[in-house]
């Protein structure tokens, strides 16, 4: 659905996005993960044509956006950065305005969208009286105007309380099930881990990891075990090509391998007459994975100049 090749954006001496290549498949929820200032919003801005790229190409729905940008935008809904609306208009009037200026594409009515995001009761209140959470909800409703195939949500749970965040996550999952492709930008690892199937991690304008969430996490998983002969076990495991490292820690062996391969690991040891007495497969969280991969990045100043 989205293909990006060699994308670069320079703001004066600052390289906001550098040599970014990305493929976002149709359907599901794609997470764009990164710390603040990593280039997530700039990347979305480039995809939406708000920002002109310094180099590289972007294809949306199979078409180069430099040639057919307006057509592509008609199939897209987006909430970029903080939700910005007219303070003197009500939530309903704001949505009517944005529905009016855009191309007519059908989809849910303004009232249905307000109902969907839980703002029906305050639909006639002026936007300036809304709480941050209500503003976010209106932003999501705005992004869903016209039943878009592709929806960009930039930090949609900012300012929401835990129950509000859970509701938004549920809504995103519902939208994905209904056939929308969602691109979710966030710095909240837990959020991305819970709702995204695919993820790209940005740091200092570059993609440092990309793939299925489960695959990425398994790559960083470990298996903690005790055996009848730990030294011999370490040698056997170290020789396996799907175990990237083995170390001893607190009386346990820690094998860097996918937790899903715990059975294979037991079998490999048993074949050499070493038996497992205790084993705990350990998955890493996306947060831990993120911290590991971003820690490997060079100094910020070196990449951004």
């Amino acid at each position: 659905m989205i293909e990006i090749e060699g994308l670069r954006k320079q703001f004066g001496s600052v390289t906001a996005v550098s040599d970014l290549s990305l493929r976002i498949p149709r359907g599901g929820v794609f997470g764009l993960l990164g710390p603040n200032g990593s280039g997530k919003t700039t990347t979305i801005g480039l995809m939406l044509g708000l920002i002109r790229p310094s180099a590289g190409s972007i294809r949306l729905f199979g078409q180069d956006v430099s040639a057919a940008h307006q057509q592509a935008l008609r199939r897209i809904g987006a909430m970029v950065e903080s939700p910005a609306f007219y303070p003197d208009l009500s939530g309903r009037a704001n949505l009517r305005f944005f529905q009016g200026i855009g191309p007519s594409r059908g989809g849910k009515s303004v009232n249905e969208l307000l109902e969907l995001v839980g703002l029906a009761a305050r639909a006639n209140s002026k936007f300036r009286t809304y709480s941050l959470g209500m503003k976010q909800r209106l932003g999501i409703a705005y992004a869903l105007l016209g039943d878009p195939e592709l929806v960009f949500l930039d930090e949609p749970t900012n300012g929401l309380d835990p129950s509000g965040m859970a509701e938004v996550r549920e809504l995103i999952e519902r939208l994905a099930k209904a056939g929308h492709t969602i691109v979710l930008s966030s710095h909240l690892m837990n959020e991305v881990e819970q709702v995204c199937q695919d993820v790209a991690i940005l740091s200092r304008g570059q993609i440092i990891a990309q793939g299925k969430v489960q695959d990425l996490l398994q790559l960083q998983g470990t298996v903690r075990l005790k055996t009848t002969a730990d030294e011999r076990a370490a040698q056997i495991l170290g020789a396996l090509d799907w175990v990237s490292a083995v170390r001893s820690e607190g009386g346990y062996l820690i094998a860097s391998a996918s937790p899903d391969r715990a059975g294979d690991l037991t079998r490999a040891l048993a074949q050499q007459d070493v038996y497992v007495t205790e084993m705990v497969p350990q998955r890493v969280s996306l947060e831990k994975f993120f911290l590991q991969v971003t820690a490997q990045q060079p100094d910020a100043a070196a990449t951004r100049q």
Binding site: G45, L48, G49, L50, Q70, L73, R74, I76, G77, A78, M79, V80, E81, S82, A84, F85, Y86, P87, F98, I101, G102, P103, Y142, L145
Partner: peptide, 18 residues
Amino acid sequence: GIEYGLGTLRPILTRGTG
């Protein structure tokens, strides 16, 4: 200038109006 002041230029332009 209102769109610059309120930051509403982004949502306007992403509606595909041109």
